[in-house]
């Protein structure tokens, strides 16, 4: 092995390592993107979930919260907000619900994906409890009320007066059918129509 060959090999090794690192970096962009979304509110991703402690309500301000329901393609459920528009004070924990009905004869499982507009408001909308945390199964012709508990952070920038929260319902039946036992906490839901 002459000196030149060693030099080449060393360089090639470094460059291949560089390639591998960049390949990994491509995948690292996935979590980095989530962090980026959280910081900037990009795409209205709602990442604040679970119980929060917010000190005090701001009764002087009223925020209009619009609740929107969207069905993704191939999702036949009837899906809508119980109250499409709410007036809330920042800091106030509000409970509302979405209604879902499975019009088909067979059991189906859905996943709701939340999104907030304007996207800057996403980080100020805290969900204490939400049906979107879990996959939601419905038997054929079953109807259910799916609860949502949320708080608007009093830190919400003053120029934002309306927050729109949308849920897109995806049909995930084929994927989750094998492990239905693990999902869907029925204690939080109530059958209202059969």
């Amino acid at each position: 092995m002459d000196a030149m060959q060693r030099k080449n090999l060393r360089l090639v090794r470094r460059l291949i390592l560089g390639c591998l690192l960049m390949f990994c970096f491509g995948f690292a962009l996935v979590p980095l993107y989530d962090v980026f979304c959280k910081v900037t509110g990009l795409n209205g991703k709602v990442l604040n979930v679970g119980p929060v402690s917010i000190g005090g309500q701001d009764l002087a301000r009223t925020i209009k919260v619009q609740l929107i329901a969207v069905n993704n393609e191939g999702m036949p459920w009837l899906f809508k907000a119980q109250t499409p528009q709410l007036e809330v004070h920042p800091g106030e924990t509000r409970k509302t619900a979405y209604l879902a009905h499975n019009p088909t004869a067979s059991r189906m499982v859905a996943q709701a994906i939340p999104s907030v507009a304007p996207s800057e408001a996403a980080q100020y909308l805290h969900k204490v409890n939400c049906f979107c945390f879990d996959q939601q199964p419905l038997e054929g012709f079953e109807t259910r009320e799916m609860p949502l508990l949320f708080v608007v952070d009093p830190e919400l920038p003053s120029h934002i007066k309306t927050i729109t929260l949308s849920y897109t319902l995806f049909d995930i039946t084929p994927k989750s059918e094998q492990h239905t036992e693990l999902i869907g906490d029925r204690s939080t839901t109530r059958r209202i129509w059969l």
Partner: peptide, 22 residues
């Protein structure tokens, strides 16, 4: 090329995984 072709490889690999591996 060394910096970005692997990222392209990464993104099509993610597509492949989305399409075939759930």
């Amino acid at each position: 090329l060394i910096a970005v072709m692997p990222v392209l490889a990464g993104v099509v690999t993610m597509m492949l995984m989305d399409i075939h591996f759930g």
